[in-house]
């Protein structure tokens, strides 16, 4: 059964903008992205929106719906009441290009700053052999679709523009953790996590985990284990003494 929904959609560019009201038809089984497409087709042909797969796998249609960072294609209209006003805005952490489209190049810059996978020098591609049990932790992080909702909701950069230089954000700290836990990665990424990617800025308030559409336990499985590894490297005199006395390297374990 269809009904007319009240939408408020942010329209504007990097200099000015406003929330505009629309009344749009909604049919059973639709998601917010369907309504935005109908709006584009019937009332606002110049509305800018980024989208691709409509299946929650490409990470393109990230936006904020009623103030919550979400994928438009994965937000069912049935989760709202028929008389509810639904507000759709672009992500508020990144510079806006136009309407619902933001410039997420910050994330690509941060991605390039992460040292790439570093296998042992004597191992050629095709010779990699790993036990499933050793790669399971890293595999969880490979589910990331790079929608950047975690980056968008993280208050470290959302509320403090000046921290963008020092802080890579949960997505890329998770990438560092993924490689640090990888059985064939030989690089020690603990110092870089703290000094170059700003792990210390994270105060583990778990908003990244809350908004992740892939339900990756970013905080519990990536950021906190990474913080513990850094604590072992930088702030634990007993570990330091043990490494010295027994001449051990934690990278081998």
């Amino acid at each position: 059964m269809g009904y007319k929904a009240q939408f408020r959609v942010w329209r504007g560019d990097d200099e000015s903008g406003e929330l505009r009201d629309y009344v749009i038809e909604v049919n059973e089984g639709e998601v917010v992205l369907d309504i935005i497409h109908r709006l584009q087709a019937t009332q606002a042909p110049d509305l800018a929106v980024r989208w691709n797969c409509k299946a929650g796998k490409c990470g393109s249609c990230s936006a904020e719906i009623n103030g919550k960072p979400r994928l438009m294609c994965m937000t069912r209209m049935s989760t709202f009441t028929e008389d509810e006003v639904i507000t759709v805005t672009p992500m508020r952490t990144f510079p806006v290009v136009r309407d619902l489209v933001t410039d997420v190049s910050f994330n690509y810059t941060k991605a390039r700053e992460v040292q790439s996978f570093t296998p042992p020098p004597d191992l050629k591609p095709g010779e990699y052999r790993m036990q499933q049990v050793d790669v399971e932790r890293s595999q969880e992080f490979r589910k990331c679709i790079e929608c950047f909702l975690c980056q968008n909701t993280c208050h470290v950069i959302r509320d403090h523009e000046e921290n963008k230089e020092a802080f890579s954000g949960p997505r890329f700290l998770m990438r560092v953790a993924e490689l640090e836990m990888h059985p064939l990665d030989t690089a020690d990424r603990r110092d870089a996590a703290q000094d170059e990617h700003g792990l210390g800025y994270c105060n583990i308030t778990k908003c990244c985990t809350e908004v992740c559409p892939e339900h990756i336990k970013i905080t519990d499985n990536a950021l906190i284990p990474m913080k513990e590894r850094v604590a072992g490297r930088r702030y634990d005199p007993v570990v330091w003494l043990g490494n010295k006395l027994f001449r051990r390297s934690s990278k081998k374990s």
Binding site: G17, N66, T89, R92, F94, T102, R158, D159
Partner: peptide, 16 residues
């Protein structure tokens, strides 16, 4: 932060 230059001009703390 949310009022930084270039970001969408939305004059409220949250739309939640």
């Amino acid at each position: 932060g949310i009022n930084a230059p270039g970001r969408a001009r939305i004059p409220v703390r949250s739309l939640r």
